[in-house]
Amino acid sequence: MTPRRKKPAPVPVNGSSPTTAPLTDDPILRSVSRAVFALILLFAFLLLWRGHNAPGGGFIAGLMTVGALILHRIATGTSALRVDPLRLVPWGLALAFLTGLVPYLLGRPFLKSAYGYITTPLTGEFEWASALLFDFGVYLVVVGGGLAIAYALTDVDPQERVEGDE
């Protein structure tokens, strides 16, 4: 038996619905959050980019991104992500798993990373690794899972009643 619960109100794209107004109407927060949002995202991508060989990685980059997206949600009351975050989780898992599976099926150890060097005039020598794809899978899982949890918590309605509460 699934307890019947009120369907949570969908996240409005334009924020006009009175029930899900921005959590605060602070203009300072709103203007600062725009710049900070971009900065955190940039830093997150940097962490993701260098993660396979230096401090950083998909997990921490994902957490930073979740932080940025939650900030956006708090400041504006709308989600910056247009898809249901939970949908990212299986894709991320599949990407990470397949990155590991390819060398395994080719007779190399599971998760063995291929790597090489490319030199571009802009970035200089850069070491690419297939571990980056794995990291990106992890990133998607963390963003999806973290956001899904955070959004589920922001949607809690303390007045909600479930069958059998009395």
């Binding site: 150890p109 063995k112 990373s113």
Partner: peptide
């Protein structure tokens, strides 16, 4: 009695 070992990522 062999112990099979599989190293992740080599």
């Amino acid at each position: 009695g062999t112990v099979l070992v599989s190293a992740l990522g080599g």
